[in-house]
Amino acid sequence: MGLFLRQDQPWRASRRETALSGVALFVVLMAVWLLNSGHYTPLIIGFGVASSLLVVFLSWRMGIVDREGLPVHLLPRATVYAPWLFKEIFTANVDVAKRVLTPFEPNISPRLFDTGVTQKTDLGRVIYANSITLTPGTVSIGVKGSYITVHAIAEDVADGLQEGEMDRRVTWLEGERR
């Protein structure tokens, strides 16, 4: 019966970090429950507490309750990064829409290339790769070590990405720790 035993898993975070992240995860899950249910009777709220506790327990057993699983420490800097990303996504949308609507033939010149990453943690790389994919005109195809394979819809879009402003901002978002 190894249900409550902590197995020998070297990737697990320290006890303090796990406890803090577990509490944060519970608070987030409970907030989602309360905002979605709209019924505030003791029975329904009790179901919510039970479900949230079960999910936290299962996540703990999977070893994903840590800073990486619920990156609340990124929130302050994310409030600066997100508006910039939205602005970038908007301009990219207008650009790709113009290319799609060009008469006679779409104005595209696709290019597939590797771009370097300067993030140190896996979490930072995932955020960078997702930001690339979220911006229309560029899609990350693979993440291997210190570079990301990107498919861009046109050469100037690719050049814009390789100037590296997004890379710098994600590195800043990630912070200097580790």
Binding site: V100, L101, P106, P110, V139
Partner: peptide
């Protein structure tokens, strides 16, 4: 309008990888 542009792109663009960008317009903006 952006959803429609994404749909047009999904039909007009020539190959799979470029169509992902068109689907991206619908999914984001």
């Amino acid at each position: 309008v952006f959803v429609l542009i994404g749909g047009i792109g999904l039909i007009r663009l020539p190959d799979f990888y470029t169509r992902i960008h068109a689907a991206g317009i619908t999914d984001t903006m």
